[in-house]
Design a protein around this nucleic acid. Sequence first.
RNA 1: GACCCCAUCGUCUAGUGGCCUAGGACACAGGGUUUUCAUCCCUGCAACACGGGUUCGACUCCCGUUGGGGUCGCCA
Length: 466
Amino acid sequence: MTYRGVTMLKTENIKVRFAPAPTGYLHVGGARTALFNWLYARNKGGKLVLRIEDTDAVRSTEESTKAIFDSLKWLGIDWDEGPFFQSERKEIYRTYAERLLSKGFAYESEDVKGTHKAVIFRLPSSRKIVIKDIIHDDVEFDTAVFKDIVLMKSDGTAAYNFACVVDDHLMGITHIIRGDDHISNTPKQVLLYEALGFPLPNFAHVPLILGPDGSRLSKRHGATSVGQYKGEGYFNKAFVNFLALLGWAPGDNREKMSTGEIIDSFGLDRIGKKGAIFDVKKLQWLNGVYIREMALEDLTGAVIPYLESAGIVDKDTDREHVKFIVSLVQERLKTFSETPAITGFFFTKDIFYDESAVKKYLLKEGVETILGKIICGIENEERFDVENLEKCFVKIKEEMNISNSKLIHPVRVAVTGSAASPPIFETMVGIGKENCVKRLKNTLSFINDGDFPFKTQNVPPPNPIE
RNA sequence: GACCCCAUCGUCUAGUGGCCUAGGACACAGGGUUUUCAUCCCUGCAACACGGGUUCGACUCCCGUUGGGGUCGCCA
């Protein structure tokens, strides 16, 4: 089997790894790296190892480790071996460091900064190192541009490049798939493989994920952690689908793909070389596609936490009622988190009015007459359902000899406070007869005294749920 | 600054010398459907960074330029 001209040995025993440092939440960049490793392993029937690179005792936290596990779980990424913690493998690294020391490849530092002497690898003065990268083909470095490599820090822990090489070898990693930002570490690691007498694994450096301005995605670009996207109400399957399409494409114009389809089509040979800008608009679109396809029951379950944390529904709210409301907004949703904002008026006692909608539809000639007739009509209907409401509206429409929209628009604003809503009859049923009548009557009095409770600009923000 | 990487519509991408007057999707614009919004449908917009080669023929290969990005820690 060959990829970009590189012959790959033992493709039947693929083993890859994801090796995050637990110094913060899982970044979308890290998530994509994890995903590509996982997809490759699953596609090849290989194995994925999870290794926590917590050699930096100061910056590593248990909280971060937990957050990373949570995010991986949310993404649906599972692993076959590990998690291994580098903090528990000090003796192993020490042994190999001593081996390099005794063979003369490394020396101990003069200045003692900690309790130990640092062990440092002596770099050959000038040597060309060619990395055979599956994505980039050959990349050449001259060792003259590097400084000597720290193997063991003076606090007794192993440094990144060393621990990484020792572990990747001991854990039997065949393919190292990681971000492009590691490519300049690779020649250093190659030197260590050689000195240690380890065979070289295959390397695949995947391009970075970029922010809207083309620079590496970072906090200043907004949401960058997987947890944030979860909290903002993205569906995990949609997020995974989107992430997979960042830097990789199946080649046949498919966009919406199930995880299984992605696994089947995935290959390192179709990963691009160019950094990819994280386009939230496309994520939102894809998320909307998934939401529209969700079973109502599932969507309701996904959305309830947001309604609860917004204080709009509680444990006692009738779930069937919530489900009905959700069914009305399903095709309007891009993320779960916007549900409170667009369904609030169904649940709250009082509503606030959109100022421009009021001006446009309520402060007009004849509106009071129309609303009055609607109130009468509703109160006289024995059953408050879509069918009867429609009959009632038609009757008034004919009586007054006016168009449908002349009737419907004012009523919509009166009962929802907004010019946009799901179909009016369903919406009214969702609001309930009593509430509708009350709002209609209130509206009448607001029109009279010109004292509408308008919506303020600061709509409550979505409540991120971690 | 040194080293490395990258370069197709605004964005994600298809494209491996002729099938390309460059395809798809998002975004955007316009139209249709709808009682509004959304959905859905249709249409439009818009790209091979530049300059040299190689070749009968380059988006595709080579060189250079420009532009962007990454890395230069006893962080990972």
